[in-house]
Design a protein around this nucleic acid. Structure first.
Lengths: 165, 165
DNA sequence: CTAGTTGCAAATGTTTTGCACAAAC
DNA sequence: GTTTGTGCAAAACATTTGCAACTAG
């Protein structure tokens, strides 16, 4: 079984790469994108965005709501959704729909990546693979279509759950 | 690094291949799978399955409900969902969740394939590509995980919508 | 006969919306 | 002082479930 630092290209874990943008960088971007659009910076929006950027990846609205409550008692569920929508429009957040009922939200990073989801423990691994990206473009030209985005998700058992089972 | 025109099978449309199984073949399979499990064949189940196998691909529950109503006035929505669930368990139907609110259902064929979805007109194209399948396995072993299934969806503009726009 | 099935209506879970009040610019 | 944003409750939406009546085996 390969160690993380041996992985060359296929499935190189994304979190191994140093992160560029800090939470405050993202907050600043959020503020300027709001201003550009004539929208307002408010306490609830800031609280939600700050908590979101501070948390890890792949958060559900429910989880975010619970975390934001710890910081600001009286934010409503609706504002969570409205702010997530705003963050998506500002290209600061991606919305993902894995094989669950609820959406998960992810801080937009610089690099595109895809996901593996463990069906037993719910763990999500990120990886990137340029060959697959290239092949998708090849498929698109054969089909005569233009791609705007894509979704590639692998489902199965992670290393831990494979042995535990 | 493979160029697009070197790819043997990139994006070969699936519907070009002759189809093996007829609707009645599938009905027969449905009946025997039900019998195996000690479940009953009933008029509502048969109507739903027959209409579904007769219709094209990628049907929503809502669309199926409307079509079944034409044949059998008094089937309920619940029975549509219950029968679709049953058909999934019998490996006769796949459930897909594209970027929409509702699920779409697809007759299970012999060959695995992936999808392109046009974001403008909703058209769905199917394609298969063994290179990508192999690459997914490579990624899985690098990550140390076991795959049970995967999802690969390309989104964009189809040939028609590309020119129309 | 009896276990499995149905239709209906009500419940579910997630996300969205209407609205009166409140806060930014 | 407008315009935009908020919280709440209610609505929307796709899907599931409880239940009494029904039906296939």
């Amino acid at each position: 079984m390969p160690r993380a630092d041996e992985l060359s290209e296929a499935g190189r874990p994304v979190h191994a790469r140093p992160r560029r943008l800090t939470a405050s960088d993202r907050m600043a971007t959020f503020h300027s994108r709001l201003r550009e659009r004539g929208l307002k910076s408010t306490a609830p929006r800031d609280d939600i965005a700050r908590v979101f950027f501070g948390l890890g990846r792949h958060i559900s609205a429910e989880e975010l709501f619970a975390e934001v409550k710890k910081v600001n008692q009286h934010v409503g569920y609706a504002t969570i959704y409205r702010t997530l929508k705003l963050l998506k429009e500002c290209d600061l957040v991606f919305e993902r729909h894995f094989d669950e009922g609820q959406a998960r939200y992810e801080v937009a990073g610089e690099h595109h990546h895809d996901h593996f989801i463990c069906e037993r423990c719910g763990k999500i691994l990120e990886f990137e693979n340029n060959d697959i990206e290239r092949m998708q473009q090849a498929i698109a030209s054969k089909l005569g279509v233009i791609l705007t985005h894509h979704k590639m998700e692998l489902y199965g058992l992670c290393a831990d759950c494979r042995t535990a089972q």
